[in-house]
Amino acid sequence: MRKNYGPVYALPSALWISAFFVVPISIIFMYSFLEKGLYGGVVWKFSLEAYRALSNCAFLKVSLMTVVLSVLATLITLALALPAAYFIARSRYKNTLLFLVIIPFWTNFLIRIYAWIAILGNSGFLNNFLLRLGITHGYTQFLYNPFAVIIVLVYTYLPFALLPLYSTIEKFDFSLLEAARDLGATNSQAIFRVLLPNIKTGIFTAVLFTFIPAFGQYAVPQLVGGRNSFMLGTIIARELTVTRNWPLSSSISVALTVLTTAGVLVFLRINNNLGGKTKAEHAASTRLHLQIKQHDA
């Protein structure tokens, strides 16, 4: 049998990832248990101060804001992505439409944020437009608040939610909807009782690809959030570079890492449970339900 060359092949990557990912994360982990240095940096004395700080009011407020913004952004994204994905899956021009969805994707992330700044800013497009039409008389503060953050988050993650949804909806057997309507279901009943249950995995993937990244966002709140919408990402950076409280920055990072990893694992577990039924079985059981309903009717 041939020699086990596995270690030879894998060693370079393993070394790189260890040196530049595992070690740094471990350093952060360590730093979170140390004392803050006077001018930044750390003092090598064990301390739980950084973790105790996590329980103070300001931090909890930021955590709450992070959760709320992420949840809202995810819900709105889903609300937009689902109908869009459905429409595309049903259209004759699937590929063109998909292409149209992806093109804006190619612009630089920052440019897309900038576009919103240009629109929402105090002398931005929207304000000018409203002033021109006489609807407002002074500028309205659209930017630098949680709403701007939500809008930009939605804008950023829409494609990430749309693609998995599209992929699942595309595989859905639409004749089930016709069967449902044939049995007397209204459009919304058909959608809620037949379509949605059968695309659960797509919905969950879309949520996974939206919520988790939104939770750890830095650039969006930093650029459009202003002082009222700090998220965990922004305060990690602030503690590191502004208040120079490295242990605190580290402990928040550890918290964010743990939460993110836990979140992903939870989602994967839920997805596996959903995947218990294959698509065919789902379709079959839905038909069965419909037939039973027909007998009842």
Binding site: A10, S13, A14, I17, S18, F20, F21, V22, V23, P24, I25, I27, I28, Y31, I212, P213, F215, G216, Q217, Y218, G233, I236, A237, L240, W246, S249, S250, S253, L256, T257, T260, T261, V264
Partner: peptide, 23 residues
């Protein structure tokens, strides 16, 4: 190796950025 190379895909970029800065 499998776990260590999977994690960067799911962790927020800020964590990776900050950890490298500290390194």
């Amino acid at each position: 190796v499998q776990i260590a190379s999977f994690l960067p895909l799911i962790l927020p970029e800020i964590i990776i950025g900050v950890s490298l800065l500290i390194l």
